[in-house]
Design a binder for these strands. Structure first.
Lengths: 212, 212
DNA sequence: AGCATATGTTGACGCTGTCAAGATATCAAA
DNA sequence: TTTGATATCTTGACAGCGTCAACATATGCT
């Protein structure tokens, strides 16, 4: 089974031009990414799956890097949606909300390991090769988390003595670290991960003191 | 300037056999790794630097993977030495010792980013391709950290309510996460990193309550 | 209708890891 | 000392990769 559309024109005749190659490539790339990982994702295999020649993708992505950035971009958008869904659960007590956020982050990474590697891995960031489009999605995502941390401090959930930015960085760093240990195959066991998350949440949050 | 030894025999005549190729390769690989990163380290370039043919390394390492594992192995040994030096500073109060351990871990990663990537990155672990020799060095390194965590709990430095193993995993996860954010180029600024470390140490440690 | 532009194709280049086959040195046993 | 096994090193070859140049074809505007 192949991902290739037969890209026919409206009259159902096979057409020289694909018509929707860019989004078709992105879709196929996501599948190929899941199947074979970042290392296994090659432009040539991708073009083959889609049914175009090796160099056709170059008319839609300047680079392999630009393709990767576009995939990562989608990853950030989807995670942002997940996160906002959690943040918007009004009825939840703060600690439980933070707990869900923490577990949600790790779950997103665990469910999309290769995508997570693309979003936060050295492939893109180490070489400073992130496109502007990607930066415009990635940075606000972290800023949002800083805002939430500030709120949690004000609510007394997190220690107000620590600098908000540093605290955000550390809590994010912890989530990132656990996520990486998981997706890089250093901790295979998912149940351990859940307990680790709970342990971390305990360490970062404190009992909320009720003023009488 | 090249790394190639002229590998002459004792009589100083150039010899067909190198005589010490394995360790020469490892030494050159470490340099090449620092210079060009994991992505830039190719067996062919390596052989070229050392002055042998492309396939000569295959008589000393079955695989590129086996070479990478051997490099990572050395990395673990060196880190283990650093860590034990910190642990053995008898006069230090517990919190300061933990602080030094935390900063030491991050410094090691920052000073040897490509080596750290090899030691804890997906290149080796994700594919389950670690050699037995590597495992025999890597696993005790973490176990040692668990022992130290247990001690810190008993000393009242860290919360004794948490399971020791989970606590070790979370604190390690945090260090690993911060290290990765640093070496993957997501946080470029080293000074931020230092403040993040202090913040994390504060979160993980508590005032030691003196019994009177 | 004609021309610019977008999109797709084939050919080629240098890089990579790795296998096979042959050359040469070393070392142990006869 | 000679012989034969074994370790080590060499060249040749292959497939896969990203990407550039040159060419082909379709689309869309004037």
């Amino acid at each position: 089974m192949s991902y290739q559309t037969e890209h026919k024109s409206k009259q159902n005749k096979p057409s020289y031009h694909h018509g929707d190659l860019r989004s078709t490539l992105l879709k196929a790339a996501n599948i190929l990414l899941k199947e074979t990982g970042i290392e296994g994702l090659s432009l040539r295999k991708l073009a083959d799956k889609v049914g175009v020649s090796r160099t056709a993708p170059y008319h839609h992505f300047k680079d392999k890097n630009q393709l990767l950035c576009a995939i990562a971009e989608q990853g950030f958008v989807r995670w942002q949606q997940d996160a906002e869904f959690i943040f918007n659960q009004v009825e939840l007590p703060p600690k439980e909300k933070y707990r869900q956020f923490f577990h949600g982050y790790i779950s997103y990474a665990a469910d999309n390991p290769e995508l997570y590697d693309l979003m936060f891995g050295r492939t893109i960031w180490k070489q400073n090769s992130a496109t502007n489009e990607l930066r415009d999605v990635a940075f606000p995502s972290f800023n949002h988390q800083v805002d939430m941390t500030k709120k949690w401090q004000e609510q007394g959930l997190m220690p107000s003595g620590e600098d908000t930015l540093r605290l955000s960085q550390v809590t994010w760093g912890t989530m990132h670290g656990i996520a990486r240990l998981l997706i890089d195959g250093i901790y295979a066991d998912r149940s351990h991960i859940d307990e680790m998350c709970d342990c971390a949440v305990n360490l970062f949050t404190q009992q909320i003191v009720q003023s009488k």
